[in-house]
Structure formats: structure tokens, C-alpha cells
Amino acid sequence: MQTTDHIMELAGHRQEDFSVCMGCKVCASVCTINDLDIDMNPQEFLLKLFMGEEIKADNPLVRYCTSCYRCASACPWQIRIPEVVRAVKESLGIEARFEKAFKKSLDIWGRVYEPFVVIMSAPDLLMGGYIKFLPKWMEYAGFHFPHKVKRIRTSHTLKKGSSSKEGRS
């Protein structure tokens, strides 16, 4: 489901939070995605949402936002744009294998158990050319058993079974 109301609800913003955006484009002047040689103007993204237009999964902000918060920090109205982007991703059901594994681990143990996440993401790691980094990553390796947290209840745990598609470039 992608409606402006739903996305704002997910992002914890209100309609008036978006309507105060005056189009100063300071977010565009600091957006990290521009460092990737992709012209990115988060203000246009907000405007599209405000106007009720559909944001597609191939939007560069949806694909590449690094949650650096440079935009949110510069915004005169403190609109948390990275969280709006994450809300759009959630509403589009975009979840890479790595992200799925992360949440699955949290569902099982209440914590991220890295060996599990690595195993679950193995197809992407093998196909994605990550093997060459293994020598550099040896210092991160080390085995420990997962610790299971006794008390955790999240709405994600309750949402299990909801459909999602894998998003990866």
C-alpha cells in the first residue's frame, strides 16, 4: 500500500510537517547521492509524496539513500527525510536478502546474530563479488553462540507472513 497518509504514518510525520517544505532545496545541495554522480533532489521526492504521486522502486533515493541525515540536518523544518525514504521502502515491500536476514535474526533471538545473517545472505555475497574482501575481513571473524533474549515483542514479529519482494541492484 502506498498512500501519502500511510507513508507519513510509518515515518512518524504529519501532513503539516510536509506542507511546511518551502522548496528551498537545501536538502538537494547536501544529499550524499549527488556524490554518486546521480542528480538527486529530495525536495522533489517530498513534493511527489505530498501530491499523492507514486514513488517507484527504482527512484535513486529509494535505492541508494545511505541514511546519512545530511538532508535532515540541513532542513529548516527538520523533516527526517531518510526515515521518509525508509517508510517508502517499507510500503513498497522492498527488502534485500541481507535486510530480511537481519530482521529474521531479531525475530528468532532478539539480537542480530551475524553468522546467521552471513549464511542467509550467502547467495548475494557469493554472486556479488564479496569474496575478494575476505582477507581484509578476517579481523571481524570469530565464533560465538547466539544469545537468545527472553523479552522482546515487536510489531514485526506479529507481522510475520506479510508479503515482500527482494530489492537489489
Binding site: L10, A11, G12, S67, P82, E83, R86, A87, V88, K89, E90, S91, E99, F102, K103, S105, L106, G110, R111, V112, V149, K150, R151, I152, T154, S155, H156
Partner: peptide, 19 residues
């Protein structure tokens, strides 16, 4: 008995804040 904070992986702010 601390649990994961949710990092940057959740699109639902309420859910993230509850975790």
C-alpha cells in the same frame, strides 16, 4: 537481557522506537 535496537532497518518508526 538487552535486545537489538533495530539499527537502520525498519521503515516503521513506531516499530523501531518500540524495539
Amino acid at each position: 537481557d538487552w535486545n537489538c535496537c533495530g539499527a537502520l532497518e525498519y521503515g516503521d518508526r513506531n516499530e523501531l522506537m518500540s524495539i
